[in-house]
């Protein structure tokens, strides 16, 4: 009962804490997977630390936010306007591998099997969670496909139901191009552990799945 009351107070920003503390709690609780209780614990932890241990975190945040942005083409993280992968002339521009998050690029890169470009959606469809196509970088993907002479779109979203629906949606939207014989939309073969994250798939499994990709 007491815990529930405490959490509610934190959420409603009552005057339990002084404004700077409350602001920090509020900011931390916006992070994914961090509830009000965890935010409160993290806040008190940070406040207990000596300044020389906390300030580097603040500086790292600031620096990363100042210097890192999204690649204007593929939405990978980059310090430049366009990411290294998009600028690399040895990479095949007619292949686009679609992933949910920038971290998924690293998983695919680790396989050393893939020599095309990427497109980061920024998530996967989940209507209940308020994620429809307009919340993802879908229009940007479709524009690239139409403008850049792309031969194949490999949809390497996570092997979850959301990832699957996202792949089906992309295939559905690109159906005219596919039916005109200009494009293939493929998905890595089964074998990735269902329900998991691309991130957790080992390299051998992932490169086998990529090699055995099939039309959606």
């Amino acid at each position: 009962m007491a815990a529930a009351r405490g959490a509610a107070a934190v959420r409603h920003g009552s005057k339990l804490f002084s404004p700077p503390i409350q602001r920090l709690i509020d900011e931390l609780s916006k992070l994914p997977g961090v509830g009000p209780k965890t935010a409160q614990r993290l806040t008190f932890h940070l406040l207990r630390l000596p300044p020389e241990e906390v300030l580097p975190l603040a500086r790292a945040l600031e620096e990363a936010k100042e210097r890192i942005g999204f690649c204007r083409k593929c939405f990978n993280l980059t310090e430049e306007e366009e990411c290294e992968l998009c600028r690399d002339p040895r990479r095949d521009p007619s292949l686009i591998c679609v992933v949910e998050e920038p971290s998924d690029i690293i998983s695919v890169e680790r396989t050393h099997e893939y020599r095309g470009r990427y497109h980061v959606l920024g998530g996967a469809l989940s209507p209940i969670d308020g994620v429809g196509p307009d919340r993802l970088r879908m229009e940007e993907l479709f524009r690239r496909v139409r403008e850049e002479e792309v031969r194949e779109v490999i949809v390497a979203t996570n092997p979850t139901m959301s990832g699957e629906a996202t792949a089906l949606y992309i295939a559905e939207e690109l159906r005219p191009e596919v039916e005109a014989g200009k494009l293939r939309v493929t998905r890595p073969a089964a074998g990735l552990p269902m329900g998991g994250d691309l991130e957790y798939a080992d390299e051998v499994t992932l490169s086998r799945a990529l090699a055995g990709r099939r039309d959606v």
Partner: peptide, 26 residues
Amino acid sequence: EEALRQRNYLLRRGAGAAEQAAWESV
């Protein structure tokens, strides 16, 4: 059950044909 909830949600919210079709496939 999750796919069903997603589709029922889309029905009520309204969605484009491609998004509907994707969830209906699933």
